[in-house]
Nucleic acid binder design. Structure first.
Length: 419
RNA sequence: CGGGGUGUGGCGCAGUCCGGUAGCGCGUUUGCUUUGGGAGCAAAAUGUCGGAGGUUCGAAUCCUCUCGCCCCGACCA
Protein backbone atom coordinates (compact mmCIF):
# COMPACT_ATOMS: atom_id res chain seq x y z
CA UNK A 1 0.00 0.00 0.00
CA UNK A 2 1.31 3.41 -0.95
CA UNK A 3 0.90 6.04 1.70
CA UNK A 4 -0.21 8.50 -0.96
CA UNK A 5 -3.10 6.14 -1.62
CA UNK A 6 -3.81 5.19 1.97
CA UNK A 7 -6.57 6.74 4.03
CA UNK A 8 -5.01 7.52 7.38
CA UNK A 9 -5.84 11.05 8.45
CA UNK A 10 -3.02 11.69 10.89
CA UNK A 11 -2.82 14.71 13.10
CA UNK A 12 -0.20 16.25 15.29
CA UNK A 13 -2.80 18.09 17.33
CA UNK A 14 -3.95 16.31 20.46
CA UNK A 15 -7.73 15.95 20.35
CA UNK A 16 -9.35 17.69 23.31
CA UNK A 17 -11.85 14.89 23.85
CA UNK A 18 -9.24 12.20 24.46
CA UNK A 19 -7.88 11.78 27.97
CA UNK A 20 -5.97 8.52 27.77
CA UNK A 21 -3.03 7.75 25.56
CA UNK A 22 -4.61 5.00 23.49
CA UNK A 23 -7.60 7.16 22.63
CA UNK A 24 -5.36 10.05 21.64
CA UNK A 25 -3.11 7.89 19.53
CA UNK A 26 -6.01 6.12 17.86
CA UNK A 27 -7.48 9.46 16.85
CA UNK A 28 -4.14 10.99 15.89
CA UNK A 29 -3.02 8.04 13.81
CA UNK A 30 -6.34 7.93 12.00
CA UNK A 31 -7.48 4.53 13.28
CA UNK A 32 -10.91 5.65 14.38
CA UNK A 33 -13.33 8.51 13.96
CA UNK A 34 -16.05 9.41 16.44
CA UNK A 35 -19.63 9.17 15.23
CA UNK A 36 -21.44 9.82 18.52
CA UNK A 37 -20.69 9.34 22.18
CA UNK A 38 -19.23 5.86 22.55
CA UNK A 39 -19.76 5.07 18.88
CA UNK A 40 -16.86 5.02 16.43
CA UNK A 41 -16.17 4.39 12.79
CA UNK A 42 -13.03 2.38 12.19
CA UNK A 43 -10.74 3.67 9.48
CA UNK A 44 -8.35 1.49 7.44
CA UNK A 45 -5.56 1.40 10.00
CA UNK A 46 -7.98 0.46 12.76
CA UNK A 47 -9.73 -2.16 10.67
CA UNK A 48 -6.41 -3.81 9.94
CA UNK A 49 -5.66 -4.08 13.64
CA UNK A 50 -9.10 -5.52 14.40
CA UNK A 51 -8.56 -8.05 11.62
CA UNK A 52 -5.15 -9.06 12.91
CA UNK A 53 -6.45 -9.62 16.42
CA UNK A 54 -9.53 -11.41 15.13
CA UNK A 55 -7.43 -13.77 13.07
CA UNK A 56 -5.40 -14.84 16.09
CA UNK A 57 -8.57 -15.37 18.10
CA UNK A 58 -10.15 -17.47 15.35
CA UNK A 59 -7.07 -19.64 14.99
CA UNK A 60 -6.94 -20.35 18.70
CA UNK A 61 -10.67 -20.92 19.09
CA UNK A 62 -10.75 -23.28 16.11
CA UNK A 63 -7.96 -25.28 17.76
CA UNK A 64 -10.21 -26.11 20.71
CA UNK A 65 -13.10 -27.18 18.54
CA UNK A 66 -15.11 -23.99 18.51
CA UNK A 67 -17.23 -23.28 15.44
CA UNK A 68 -17.37 -19.80 14.06
CA UNK A 69 -20.83 -18.46 13.32
CA UNK A 70 -22.29 -15.02 12.86
CA UNK A 71 -25.45 -14.35 14.80
CA UNK A 72 -27.91 -11.69 13.77
CA UNK A 73 -27.27 -8.48 15.63
CA UNK A 74 -30.94 -7.58 15.51
CA UNK A 75 -32.99 -10.03 17.54
CA UNK A 76 -36.66 -10.39 18.39
CA UNK A 77 -37.64 -9.48 21.92
CA UNK A 78 -39.41 -12.83 22.28
CA UNK A 79 -36.12 -14.66 22.59
CA UNK A 80 -35.12 -12.51 25.51
CA UNK A 81 -38.53 -12.58 27.11
CA UNK A 82 -38.15 -16.35 27.13
CA UNK A 83 -34.90 -16.24 29.08
CA UNK A 84 -36.24 -13.57 31.38
CA UNK A 85 -33.57 -11.06 30.46
CA UNK A 86 -35.68 -8.73 28.33
CA UNK A 87 -36.75 -6.86 31.45
CA UNK A 88 -33.70 -7.71 33.54
CA UNK A 89 -31.20 -6.18 31.13
CA UNK A 90 -32.60 -2.71 31.63
CA UNK A 91 -31.68 0.44 29.81
CA UNK A 92 -28.35 -0.88 28.59
CA UNK A 93 -30.20 -2.80 25.95
CA UNK A 94 -30.99 -0.84 22.82
CA UNK A 95 -34.59 -1.59 21.92
CA UNK A 96 -36.01 -1.18 18.45
CA UNK A 97 -39.32 -1.47 16.68
CA UNK A 98 -39.83 -2.66 13.14
CA UNK A 99 -42.50 -1.29 10.77
CA UNK A 100 -45.09 -3.66 12.15
CA UNK A 101 -44.42 -2.30 15.62
CA UNK A 102 -42.72 -5.54 16.62
CA UNK A 103 -40.20 -5.42 19.46
CA UNK A 104 -36.57 -6.02 18.59
CA UNK A 105 -33.21 -5.27 20.11
CA UNK A 106 -29.59 -4.87 19.08
CA UNK A 107 -27.78 -7.69 20.78
CA UNK A 108 -25.58 -6.81 23.76
CA UNK A 109 -24.58 -10.49 24.15
CA UNK A 110 -25.85 -13.72 22.68
CA UNK A 111 -26.66 -16.43 25.22
CA UNK A 112 -30.24 -16.46 24.00
CA UNK A 113 -29.36 -16.54 20.33
CA UNK A 114 -26.77 -19.28 20.83
CA UNK A 115 -29.17 -21.35 22.92
CA UNK A 116 -31.88 -20.91 20.32
CA UNK A 117 -29.65 -22.11 17.50
CA UNK A 118 -28.48 -25.00 19.66
CA UNK A 119 -31.96 -26.23 20.59
CA UNK A 120 -33.16 -26.19 17.01
CA UNK A 121 -30.50 -28.54 15.76
CA UNK A 122 -28.90 -30.46 18.60
CA UNK A 123 -31.02 -33.31 19.91
CA UNK A 124 -28.59 -35.93 21.18
CA UNK A 125 -25.96 -36.14 23.90
CA UNK A 126 -23.73 -37.64 21.21
CA UNK A 127 -23.38 -34.21 19.65
CA UNK A 128 -22.01 -32.68 22.85
CA UNK A 129 -19.97 -30.78 23.58
CA UNK A 130 -21.07 -28.13 21.10
CA UNK A 131 -19.19 -24.89 20.93
CA UNK A 132 -20.21 -21.88 18.85
CA UNK A 133 -18.47 -18.54 18.68
CA UNK A 134 -18.65 -15.40 16.64
CA UNK A 135 -16.92 -12.08 16.14
CA UNK A 136 -19.50 -9.40 15.82
CA UNK A 137 -20.50 -5.93 16.91
CA UNK A 138 -22.43 -5.51 20.12
CA UNK A 139 -24.29 -2.56 21.48
CA UNK A 140 -24.69 -1.75 25.13
CA UNK A 141 -26.14 1.61 25.97
CA UNK A 142 -23.60 2.29 28.68
CA UNK A 143 -24.42 4.83 31.34
CA UNK A 144 -21.16 6.56 30.67
CA UNK A 145 -19.10 5.70 27.61
CA UNK A 146 -15.51 6.88 27.94
CA UNK A 147 -11.93 6.56 26.83
CA UNK A 148 -12.79 6.14 23.17
CA UNK A 149 -13.25 2.54 22.15
CA UNK A 150 -12.06 1.36 25.56
CA UNK A 151 -15.61 1.67 26.79
CA UNK A 152 -17.67 2.30 23.73
CA UNK A 153 -21.34 1.62 23.42
CA UNK A 154 -20.83 -0.18 20.15
CA UNK A 155 -17.90 -2.56 20.31
CA UNK A 156 -16.45 -5.58 18.55
CA UNK A 157 -16.51 -8.69 20.67
CA UNK A 158 -15.70 -12.30 20.18
CA UNK A 159 -18.32 -14.23 22.09
CA UNK A 160 -18.45 -18.00 22.44
CA UNK A 161 -21.02 -20.38 23.90
CA UNK A 162 -20.47 -23.97 24.97
CA UNK A 163 -22.93 -26.78 25.68
CA UNK A 164 -21.80 -29.82 27.64
CA UNK A 165 -23.61 -32.90 28.87
CA UNK A 166 -22.56 -32.56 32.49
CA UNK A 167 -20.66 -30.34 34.87
CA UNK A 168 -17.37 -32.25 34.64
CA UNK A 169 -17.38 -31.89 30.89
CA UNK A 170 -18.36 -28.23 31.13
CA UNK A 171 -15.47 -27.65 33.47
CA UNK A 172 -13.05 -29.25 31.00
CA UNK A 173 -14.38 -26.98 28.29
CA UNK A 174 -14.00 -24.00 30.59
CA UNK A 175 -10.39 -24.94 31.28
CA UNK A 176 -9.67 -25.35 27.59
CA UNK A 177 -11.03 -21.90 26.91
CA UNK A 178 -9.06 -20.53 29.81
CA UNK A 179 -5.83 -21.80 28.28
CA UNK A 180 -6.88 -20.73 24.81
CA UNK A 181 -7.43 -17.22 26.11
CA UNK A 182 -4.04 -17.11 27.75
CA UNK A 183 -2.50 -18.13 24.43
CA UNK A 184 -4.46 -15.52 22.51
CA UNK A 185 -3.37 -12.65 24.72
CA UNK A 186 0.22 -13.82 24.76
CA UNK A 187 0.29 -14.18 20.99
CA UNK A 188 -0.81 -10.57 20.72
CA UNK A 189 2.18 -9.74 22.89
CA UNK A 190 0.31 -8.93 26.06
CA UNK A 191 0.63 -10.19 29.62
CA UNK A 192 -2.78 -11.35 30.79
CA UNK A 193 -3.63 -11.67 34.44
CA UNK A 194 -6.59 -13.99 34.99
CA UNK A 195 -8.58 -13.03 38.06
CA UNK A 196 -11.60 -14.61 39.70
CA UNK A 197 -14.65 -12.60 38.93
CA UNK A 198 -18.29 -12.03 39.61
CA UNK A 199 -20.52 -13.47 37.02
CA UNK A 200 -22.74 -10.38 36.81
CA UNK A 201 -25.78 -10.43 34.57
CA UNK A 202 -24.71 -13.65 32.89
CA UNK A 203 -25.21 -15.63 36.08
CA UNK A 204 -23.42 -18.74 37.32
CA UNK A 205 -20.68 -19.69 39.65
CA UNK A 206 -17.32 -20.03 37.87
CA UNK A 207 -15.88 -17.00 36.20
CA UNK A 208 -12.55 -15.40 35.33
CA UNK A 209 -11.65 -12.05 33.93
CA UNK A 210 -8.54 -11.63 31.81
CA UNK A 211 -6.89 -8.38 32.71
CA UNK A 212 -4.20 -6.60 30.75
CA UNK A 213 -1.89 -4.70 33.05
CA UNK A 214 -1.94 -0.96 32.36
CA UNK A 215 -1.84 2.13 34.53
CA UNK A 216 -4.92 3.50 32.79
CA UNK A 217 -6.92 0.37 33.59
CA UNK A 218 -10.24 0.76 35.35
CA UNK A 219 -9.86 -2.32 37.54
CA UNK A 220 -7.57 -2.72 40.52
CA UNK A 221 -6.09 -6.20 40.79
CA UNK A 222 -4.64 -8.12 43.71
CA UNK A 223 -2.67 -11.17 42.69
CA UNK A 224 0.12 -13.40 43.83
CA UNK A 225 3.46 -12.22 42.53
CA UNK A 226 4.35 -15.63 41.15
CA UNK A 227 1.28 -15.56 38.90
CA UNK A 228 3.15 -13.84 36.11
CA UNK A 229 5.52 -16.79 35.81
CA UNK A 230 3.09 -19.61 36.55
CA UNK A 231 2.08 -22.37 34.15
CA UNK A 232 -1.47 -22.36 32.81
CA UNK A 233 -2.40 -25.28 35.05
CA UNK A 234 -1.19 -23.48 38.16
CA UNK A 235 -2.78 -20.22 37.13
CA UNK A 236 -6.37 -21.12 37.88
CA UNK A 237 -5.51 -21.95 41.46
CA UNK A 238 -3.41 -18.92 42.36
CA UNK A 239 -4.88 -16.04 44.29
CA UNK A 240 -5.93 -13.26 41.95
CA UNK A 241 -9.00 -11.06 42.28
CA UNK A 242 -10.23 -7.67 41.30
CA UNK A 243 -10.88 -5.04 43.93
CA UNK A 244 -14.57 -5.83 44.38
CA UNK A 245 -13.77 -9.37 45.46
CA UNK A 246 -10.64 -8.60 47.44
CA UNK A 247 -10.72 -9.72 51.04
CA UNK A 248 -7.35 -9.28 52.79
CA UNK A 249 -8.19 -12.16 55.12
CA UNK A 250 -8.17 -14.62 52.26
CA UNK A 251 -4.74 -13.54 51.13
CA UNK A 252 -2.76 -13.93 54.34
CA UNK A 253 0.68 -15.39 53.86
CA UNK A 254 0.66 -14.67 50.14
CA UNK A 255 3.01 -12.24 48.46
CA UNK A 256 0.71 -9.93 46.52
CA UNK A 257 1.09 -7.49 43.69
CA UNK A 258 -1.38 -4.69 43.16
CA UNK A 259 -1.84 -3.34 39.64
CA UNK A 260 -4.34 -1.60 37.45
CA UNK A 261 -5.78 -3.67 34.67
CA UNK A 262 -7.94 -3.47 31.58
CA UNK A 263 -10.52 -6.20 31.39
CA UNK A 264 -10.05 -7.69 27.95
CA UNK A 265 -11.80 -11.00 28.38
CA UNK A 266 -14.33 -12.65 30.63
CA UNK A 267 -15.37 -16.28 30.80
CA UNK A 268 -18.29 -17.87 32.61
CA UNK A 269 -19.46 -21.34 33.42
CA UNK A 270 -23.05 -20.85 34.45
CA UNK A 271 -24.81 -24.18 34.32
CA UNK A 272 -28.30 -24.63 33.01
CA UNK A 273 -29.70 -21.14 33.44
CA UNK A 274 -30.44 -20.65 29.76
CA UNK A 275 -30.84 -24.24 28.66
CA UNK A 276 -33.60 -24.69 31.24
CA UNK A 277 -35.34 -21.35 30.81
CA UNK A 278 -35.31 -21.77 27.05
CA UNK A 279 -36.06 -25.47 27.10
CA UNK A 280 -32.91 -26.46 25.24
CA UNK A 281 -32.41 -30.15 25.92
CA UNK A 282 -30.94 -33.27 24.40
CA UNK A 283 -31.64 -36.93 25.12
CA UNK A 284 -29.06 -38.93 27.03
CA UNK A 285 -28.21 -42.60 26.50
CA UNK A 286 -31.27 -43.60 28.50
CA UNK A 287 -33.55 -41.45 26.39
CA UNK A 288 -33.98 -38.92 29.17
CA UNK A 289 -34.05 -35.17 28.69
CA UNK A 290 -30.93 -33.45 29.92
CA UNK A 291 -30.27 -29.72 29.95
CA UNK A 292 -26.74 -28.88 28.84
CA UNK A 293 -24.30 -27.14 31.13
CA UNK A 294 -23.39 -23.94 29.41
CA UNK A 295 -20.51 -21.51 29.40
CA UNK A 296 -19.95 -18.21 27.67
CA UNK A 297 -16.66 -16.59 26.78
CA UNK A 298 -15.97 -13.07 25.63
CA UNK A 299 -13.04 -11.05 24.35
CA UNK A 300 -13.45 -7.35 23.69
CA UNK A 301 -11.59 -6.99 20.41
CA UNK A 302 -12.03 -3.26 19.93
CA UNK A 303 -11.05 -2.72 23.54
CA UNK A 304 -8.06 -4.99 23.06
CA UNK A 305 -6.85 -2.81 20.19
CA UNK A 306 -6.80 0.10 22.64
CA UNK A 307 -5.25 -2.02 25.37
CA UNK A 308 -2.37 -2.97 23.10
CA UNK A 309 -1.66 0.72 22.56
CA UNK A 310 -1.83 1.37 26.30
CA UNK A 311 0.77 -1.33 26.72
CA UNK A 312 2.98 -0.38 23.77
CA UNK A 313 3.65 3.23 22.97
CA UNK A 314 6.16 5.96 23.62
CA UNK A 315 6.05 9.73 23.43
CA UNK A 316 6.20 9.60 19.64
CA UNK A 317 3.35 7.22 19.06
CA UNK A 318 2.21 3.65 18.90
CA UNK A 319 4.64 0.73 18.88
CA UNK A 320 2.69 -2.22 17.57
CA UNK A 321 3.69 -5.72 18.52
CA UNK A 322 4.02 -7.60 15.25
CA UNK A 323 1.00 -9.76 15.90
CA UNK A 324 -1.36 -6.78 16.06
CA UNK A 325 0.40 -4.42 13.67
CA UNK A 326 -1.61 -3.00 10.77
CA UNK A 327 1.42 -3.45 8.51
CA UNK A 328 4.55 -5.54 8.91
CA UNK A 329 6.92 -2.90 7.66
CA UNK A 330 6.89 0.65 6.40
CA UNK A 331 9.25 1.91 3.72
CA UNK A 332 10.12 5.57 4.04
CA UNK A 333 11.45 7.42 1.07
CA UNK A 334 12.85 10.59 2.55
CA UNK A 335 13.48 12.31 -0.76
CA UNK A 336 11.05 11.63 -3.55
CA UNK A 337 13.10 13.70 -6.01
CA UNK A 338 16.33 11.79 -5.53
CA UNK A 339 16.69 9.09 -8.16
CA UNK A 340 18.67 6.71 -5.97
CA UNK A 341 16.08 6.99 -3.22
CA UNK A 342 13.21 6.45 -5.63
CA UNK A 343 14.85 3.41 -7.18
CA UNK A 344 15.77 1.82 -3.88
CA UNK A 345 12.29 2.46 -2.50
CA UNK A 346 10.59 1.00 -5.52
CA UNK A 347 12.84 -2.08 -5.51
CA UNK A 348 12.27 -2.80 -1.83
CA UNK A 349 8.57 -2.08 -1.98
CA UNK A 350 7.98 -4.40 -4.92
CA UNK A 351 10.04 -7.18 -3.42
CA UNK A 352 8.38 -7.05 0.01
CA UNK A 353 4.84 -6.58 -1.28
CA UNK A 354 4.77 -10.16 -2.48
CA UNK A 355 5.04 -11.54 1.02
CA UNK A 356 4.45 -8.77 3.55
CA UNK A 357 1.99 -6.06 4.36
CA UNK A 358 3.99 -3.01 3.40
CA UNK A 359 3.11 0.64 3.79
CA UNK A 360 5.35 2.68 1.51
CA UNK A 361 5.65 6.38 2.19
CA UNK A 362 5.98 7.98 -1.24
CA UNK A 363 4.55 11.37 -0.30
CA UNK A 364 6.37 14.50 -1.31
CA UNK A 365 6.33 16.12 2.08
CA UNK A 366 9.00 17.07 4.53
CA UNK A 367 11.30 14.49 6.00
CA UNK A 368 10.28 15.30 9.52
CA UNK A 369 6.65 14.80 8.76
CA UNK A 370 7.21 11.38 7.23
CA UNK A 371 9.31 10.21 10.12
CA UNK A 372 6.81 11.60 12.59
CA UNK A 373 3.91 9.86 10.87
CA UNK A 374 5.84 6.61 10.74
CA UNK A 375 6.50 6.77 14.47
CA UNK A 376 2.95 7.85 15.25
CA UNK A 377 1.45 4.93 13.32
CA UNK A 378 4.01 2.67 14.92
CA UNK A 379 4.58 -0.10 12.39
CA UNK A 380 7.18 -2.39 13.97
CA UNK A 381 9.86 -2.09 11.28
CA UNK A 382 10.80 1.01 9.37
CA UNK A 383 13.02 0.89 6.31
CA UNK A 384 14.44 4.36 5.93
CA UNK A 385 15.82 5.43 2.56
CA UNK A 386 17.56 8.76 2.48
CA UNK A 387 19.92 10.42 0.02
CA UNK A 388 22.96 10.21 2.27
CA UNK A 389 22.88 6.46 2.76
CA UNK A 390 21.39 5.68 -0.65
CA UNK A 391 24.42 7.31 -2.19
CA UNK A 392 26.57 4.52 -0.75
CA UNK A 393 24.01 1.82 -1.51
CA UNK A 394 22.60 1.30 1.94
CA UNK A 395 19.31 1.83 3.73
CA UNK A 396 18.45 1.82 7.39
CA UNK A 397 16.25 -0.67 9.19
CA UNK A 398 14.78 0.69 12.38
CA UNK A 399 13.10 -1.44 14.97
CA UNK A 400 10.35 0.70 16.42
CA UNK A 401 10.28 -1.40 19.58
CA UNK A 402 13.92 -1.21 20.51
CA UNK A 403 14.86 1.92 18.60
CA UNK A 404 17.76 -0.03 17.14
CA UNK A 405 18.89 1.12 13.70
CA UNK A 406 20.88 -1.15 11.38
CA UNK A 407 22.45 -0.18 8.12
CA UNK A 408 22.20 -2.71 5.33
CA UNK A 409 21.98 -2.99 1.58
CA UNK A 410 18.63 -3.19 -0.20
CA UNK A 411 19.16 -6.88 -0.89
CA UNK A 412 19.93 -7.57 2.74
CA UNK A 413 16.85 -5.77 3.97
CA UNK A 414 14.67 -7.63 1.47
CA UNK A 415 16.23 -10.91 2.58
CA UNK A 416 15.63 -10.00 6.19
CA UNK A 417 11.86 -9.88 5.63
CA UNK A 418 11.36 -12.56 3.02
CA UNK A 419 13.40 -15.38 4.53
C1' C B 1 -29.43 9.72 36.52
C1' G B 2 -26.62 13.21 40.11
C1' G B 3 -22.17 16.61 40.24
C1' G B 4 -18.56 19.58 37.25
C1' G B 5 -17.21 21.55 32.50
C1' U B 6 -17.66 22.78 27.39
C1' G B 7 -19.72 24.01 22.31
C1' U B 8 -16.51 29.88 17.80
C1' G B 9 -13.39 27.79 9.82
C1' G B 10 -10.92 20.66 9.28
C1' C B 11 -8.16 20.52 14.45
C1' G B 12 -6.58 23.25 19.01
C1' C B 13 -8.03 27.76 21.19
C1' A B 14 -8.82 33.45 22.31
C1' G B 15 -12.89 36.78 22.26
C1' U B 16 -18.30 36.36 26.35
C1' C B 17 -17.60 39.55 32.60
C1' C B 18 -17.95 45.34 30.26
C1' G B 19 -23.10 44.03 23.22
C1' G B 20 -20.66 47.60 17.92
C1' U B 21 -20.71 43.09 12.99
C1' A B 22 -15.02 37.57 14.41
C1' G B 23 -9.31 36.60 15.61
C1' C B 24 -4.75 33.45 16.58
C1' G B 25 -1.90 28.80 15.96
C1' C B 26 -1.94 24.26 13.30
C1' G B 27 -3.82 22.16 8.93
C1' U B 28 -5.49 23.15 3.71
C1' U B 29 -4.57 25.59 -1.45
C1' U B 30 -0.86 28.04 -4.98
C1' G B 31 4.26 29.35 -6.08
C1' C B 32 9.37 29.12 -4.92
C1' U B 33 12.93 27.10 -1.69
C1' U B 34 14.07 22.83 1.41
C1' U B 35 14.93 17.33 2.21
C1' G B 36 17.92 12.23 7.96
C1' G B 37 13.26 13.74 13.07
C1' G B 38 6.53 17.20 13.32
C1' A B 39 10.63 22.51 7.19
C1' G B 40 11.27 28.21 5.32
C1' C B 41 9.34 32.47 2.60
C1' A B 42 5.23 34.65 0.00
C1' A B 43 0.18 34.72 -1.33
C1' A B 44 -4.81 32.65 -0.67
C1' A B 45 -9.38 30.14 0.71
C1' U B 46 -12.56 28.50 4.59
C1' G B 47 -17.22 30.62 9.87
C1' U B 48 -25.23 30.75 9.07
C1' C B 49 -20.00 31.63 16.64
C1' G B 50 -24.40 24.00 18.54
C1' G B 51 -29.94 25.01 17.73
C1' A B 52 -34.67 27.74 18.71
C1' G B 53 -36.95 31.85 20.76
C1' G B 54 -36.43 36.64 23.18
C1' U B 55 -34.23 41.73 24.71
C1' U B 56 -31.83 45.62 21.67
C1' C B 57 -30.80 50.44 16.61
C1' G B 58 -27.27 46.39 16.94
C1' A B 59 -26.03 39.76 20.04
C1' A B 60 -20.51 34.98 19.66
C1' U B 61 -21.32 38.33 23.95
C1' C B 62 -27.42 39.55 27.81
C1' C B 63 -32.19 36.36 29.02
C1' U B 64 -35.22 31.67 28.33
C1' C B 65 -35.55 26.91 26.43
C1' U B 66 -33.16 22.99 23.96
C1' C B 67 -29.40 19.63 21.86
C1' G B 68 -24.43 17.66 21.56
C1' C B 69 -19.82 16.47 23.71
C1' C B 70 -16.10 15.75 27.77
C1' C B 71 -14.75 14.71 32.97
C1' C B 72 -16.12 12.49 38.25
C1' G B 73 -19.71 8.34 40.48
C1' A B 74 -23.07 3.36 39.93
C1' C B 75 -22.67 -0.70 35.09
C1' C B 76 -19.61 -3.76 31.73
C1' A B 77 -15.96 -7.07 26.80
Amino acid sequence: MLFSNFFAPTSKEIPAEAKIVSHRLMLRSGMISRTASGIYSWLPLGVRVLDKISKIICEEQDKIGANRVCFSTIQPADLWIESGRYDAYGKEMLRLKDRKDGDFLYSPTNEEQATDVFRRYVKSYRELPTFLYQINWKFRDEIRPRFGVMRGREFLMKDGYSFDADFESAKRTYEKVFKSYMTIFRRIGLTPVPVRADSGAIGGNMSHEFQILADSGESTLYYEKKLLSASDDELMNLFAVSEEKYDPASAVGKELSVSKGIEAGHIFCFGTKYSKSMNAFVLNEKGEKIFPEMGSYGIGISRLAAAVIEAFHDDRGIIWPEAAAPFDVTVLNLNTKNERCVNATSEIYKALSSGKEVLCDDRDISVGEKLADADLIGIPHQIIIGPQKAAVGTVELKNRRTGEIREMSSDEVIGRFLN
